[in-house]
């Protein structure tokens, strides 16, 4: 795959990006409630002042044009909820935290997931299969909002060997990244096992085995590459999700990440933050999927991009 392909992908993204901006911009305005609705009814005159201040009194189309214009200049606008912050600043502060948490979790997920899945595929229908797969099922059934408090209870409260919240020391990274990574590890291990089993039955692997190659060599050299394809195509959205979708983990461990802004801004109707975070998420997905496609080509020479 050459430079032309890369450029093509990038250029192809522009209209899609534009479509996403438009779709989200109008979609979120259809939901009932506005950024200034609160338990205490804001008197109509004050509401008018507020709308004027944030240009919400202009026709929607005008607001859209203004937004596009600001966006073109890299300005995502002010937040309605966090009055002294711009969306750029919010993302600038929270994204590095989320990226770090996400990458550490991903390392956990891949380490645990591929090991467990590989082990299971190597000796299917034995204890090596059943035990890791059972744990992975637990990982799937027990969402982060169960795993997180559970880990906190065991390692934070009973054993008192890990911090229960915060984001300062290296220790603060352990429980949250494990919590977040565990769920993804569960999925990855299942996909790994499935993919490997699939490939192992293919002729070329059987040929290799017939030639008397040791099983470990077959696993690593022949099957792991192809067998990881389902994992890889899962990783694209998963990576984006792991970085942006860590709301629960972030709340449990009081981590100043981006995940909580996704839900919070939607619940607050903080339109600009919704836009900013959604666009960031879209970009993340694009980048991750792009990386996935590149990896795909490396892992599976049969896939060619024309």
């Amino acid at each position: 795959m050459g430079l032309r392909y890369l450029l093509g992908r990038l250029l192809g993204m522009i209209p899609v990006f534009f479509a996403v901006v438009t779709a989200i911009f109008f979609l979120i305005r259809f939901a009932p409630g506005g950024p200034f609705d609160s338990e205490r009814n804001v008197p109509p005159q004050i509401l008018e002042n507020l709308n004027k201040k944030y240009h919400l009194d202009e026709p929607l189309l005008m607001q859209y044009v203004h937004y596009l214009n600001d966006l073109a200049h890299g300005d995502l606008g002010p937040s309605f909820k966090h009055a002294n912050r711009t969306v750029n600043e919010i993302i600038g502060e929270a994204f590095p935290v989320s990226l770090e948490l996400g990458l550490i979790s991903l390392v956990w997920a891949l380490l645990i997931g591929i090991t467990a899945g590989g082990l299971a595929a190597l000796k299917p229908n034995t204890a090596f299969d059943y035990i890791p797969m059972s744990i992975s099922i637990l990982g799937i059934c027990l969402p982060t909002f169960v795993i997180g408090p559970f880990l906190v209870l065991v390692f934070g409260m009973w054993l008192e060997i890990a911090p229960v919240s915060g984001w300062d020391s290296i220790g603060d990274r352990i429980l949250p990244s494990l919590t977040l990574g565990f769920a993804f590890a569960a999925y990855i291990s299942r996909l790994t096992r499935g993919g490997l089993m699939e490939i192992r039955s293919l002729d070329f692997v059987r040929t290799a085995r017939a030639k008397g190659l040791p099983e470990s060599l077959i696993l690593v050299k022949h099957t792991l590459r192809g067998g990881l394809l389902p994992v890889v195509s899962y990783l694209g959205p998963a990576l984006a999700g792991i970085i942006a979708g860590a709301l629960v983990t972030e709340t449990i461990f009081s981590i100043p990440g981006l995940g909580r802004f996704f839900i919070e801004s939607a619940l607050n109707r903080d339109y600009t933050v919704v836009m900013g975070t959604s666009l960031l998420y879209f970009t993340l997905i694009f980048v991750c999927n792009f990386l996935v496609d590149v990896t795909y080509t490396i892992l599976d020479p049969r896939v060619r991009h024309e």
């Binding site: 645990i112 090991t115 054993l159 008192e160 060997i161 890990a162 911090p163 020391s169 220790g171 352990i174």
Partner: peptide, 16 residues
């Protein structure tokens, strides 16, 4: 991997 995790936890004991 497990050993790393366990050792990691004990190293963190200084905080908290």
């Amino acid at each position: 991997i497990m050993a790393v995790v366990v050792v990691g936890f004990f190293l963190m004991k200084n905080r908290g």
